[in-house]
Every structure is written in structure tokens, then in C-alpha cells.
């Protein structure tokens, strides 16, 4: 499968849609060296007509009541390795914060991934900030292992991250991500943490199960999220259960 095509072009005035996750849009789309095979362009253009937004169980109500289908996420990626455990995602000293309290939810976000060792020279959330500039986290195997603390996916979601793309997940982290609707826990077919670098500009297309690295110009296949997708999109299990009539709406 060819990932490169010298003929594909991108409209110069193309602006990337930003979800509510994305705090910093690329300043210039023309600087991207990404190209793709022909079908890519139309699909990409289709996705920019939507306005992705994640509804989260814990998040304070969004200013706008309008929520639309999240079909793609676009932004900078932050790359981590294997076995990123929940102590690295949100160290235990911050677990006094209660995710169901809106102000403490925001604070959890400011501590997201603060437990990574000093070898990670670029911090996920810069000191003094409450939000990350990285909307997509790319990890290796067994992401989210360790504790059952729901603070972990909550911290990532509260920081503004939309999705994690990892080779595999620890069971409880995956379940907590879906139950809360905080982040999409997507699985990659290949070892993306060695293919992407922190700061690369990437797009995740949910419907296409695809991740595009615009910085390197490569595309990668993701595993389908399956039945978990609609649950996250609805904003977690309770929201999904109400939306689908499983439990009464209030």
C-alpha cells in the first residue's frame, strides 16, 4: 500500500478543523509535507465539515449544548513508550482530587502525565498551564497498567487530550476510558511510538480507522474501536444508556 504520492495536492487555504480538544492549531497548513493517495483528500475534506466534540461524564457542561459526532481528531501528538502506568499518568499524591467535582476535574488535567520520568524532556502539560497542546497521545504496549484509578483517563481528558493511540491497553484503563467517555483508547496495528515523535502533526480518522502523520507523510491503520465508540461518543456509559433507552432519561 502506497503511502506516498507525488501527485496529490492539498488546497492552500485548507484549515484544519479543531475540536474542543485542540488548543493550538498549526499556524500554517502549507508547511505540511504530507501527501497521500488520491482517496485521502476527499475523505479528509469530508471530516473537516464536522465539528468534533467529546462529551464527557465528568466535564463541566460545555458552553454550547450542541454536540456533534466526533469523526476525527487533529493536532500535535505526544509520544510515550511501553507500560505507561497510572502512576505516571497521574501520580498518587494527586488522587486527593475528586474527579466528580468540576474544579478538581480541571486540576487533574493540569497534572496529566506529570509522573513521567525526567527523560521525557518535553512535558505533556507545561508548568503553569492547565491544558495540553497535544491532543493525541501515542503509546506502546500495555498503556495504563497498574492502578484502577479512574483519575487516569480523567486527567488525560481534562487536560484536553482527545485520544490515546497505543499498541495495547491494560484492562481497567481501557474500561475506565470508555465508561467515562474521557478519551478514545484506540489501538494501532503497528508500533506507532517508534514511528511518531512528540510534536508531529497527526490526524486520527475514526471512521477510517486511520492515523495520518502529516509531519512524516505516513499513514497507519488502527484497529476498529467497535461498540465502545458510540459509548465514548455519547459521553460514557450512563449517557449512552440514557441515549439508547437502556435506562430512563432524567
Amino acid at each position: 500500500m502506497a503511502f506516498f504520492s507525488s501527485t496529490a495536492t492539498i488546497p492552500q487555504n485548507l484549515t484544519f478543523v479543531s475540536s474542543n480538544k485542540l488548543s493550538s492549531s498549526p499556524s500554517s497548513t502549507t508547511s505540511f509535507n504530507f501527501v497521500s493517495f488520491p482517496s485521502f483528500q476527499s475523505k479528509f475534506c469530508k471530516t473537516i465539515t464536522t465539528s468534533p466534540q467529546i462529551t464527557r461524564a465528568h466535564a463541566p457542561p460545555a458552553p454550547s449544548t450542541e454536540t456533534t459526532t466526533a469523526s476525527s481528531f487533529h493536532g500535535l501528538c505526544y509520544v510515550v513508550g511501553d507500560n505507561i502506568d497510572t502512576d505516571q499518568i497521574i501520580p498518587a499524591e494527586h488522587l486527593t482530587l475528586v474527579p466528580s467535582k468540576p474544579d478538581e476535574y480541571q486540576k487533574l488535567g493540569s497534572f496529566a502525565l506529570i509522573g513521567l520520568p525526567d527523560s521525557y524532556t518535553v512535558r505533556f502539560v507545561e508548568s503553569g498551564e492547565t491544558k495540553t497542546k497535544y491532543s493525541i497521545i501515542i503509546g506502546g504496549a500495555n498503556f495504563g497498567c497498574g492502578s484502577s484509578r479512574e483519575h487516569a483517563p480523567v486527567a488525560l481528558g481534562a487536560s484536553g487530550a482527545a485520544a490515546v493511540v497505543a499498541e495495547s491497553y491494560a484492562r481497567i484503563f481501557f474500561r475506565n476510558s470508555v465508561a467515562t467517555g474521557e478519551v478514545y483508547p484506540l489501538e494501532s496495528e503497528t508500533r506507532l511510538c517508534e514511528e511518531c515523535r512528540t510534536g508531529d502533526v497527526v490526524t486520527v480518522e475514526l471512521a477510517e480507522n486511520r492515523l495520518i502523520n502529516h509531519t512524516t507523510g505516513k499513514e497507519y491503520q488502527l484497529k476498529p474501536i467497535g461498540d465502545a465508540g458510540p459509548v465514548i461518543e455519547a459521553g460514557g456509559i450512563f449517557a449512552y444508556a440514557r441515549k439508547t433507552g437502556m435506562i430512563p432519561t432524567r
Partner: peptide
């Protein structure tokens, strides 16, 4: 709501850890 809930499997029971949202349910 703790990953080490699995400790109780020593008694021949099914014991596992869950998150806050599942526990709320």
C-alpha cells in the same frame, strides 16, 4: 475501586478492580 481487589481471589471468589463510574453504577 482498587486494582488489588483481586487479592480476595485467594478465597475462591471472583474479585476484580473497577473504576469510579462503574462503581457509581
Amino acid at each position: 475501586t482498587d486494582s488489588h481487589t483481586c487479592t480476595a481471589g485467594a478465597f475462591g471468589q471472583f474479585a476484580t478492580g473497577i473504576g469510579n463510574t462503574d462503581a457509581g453504577f
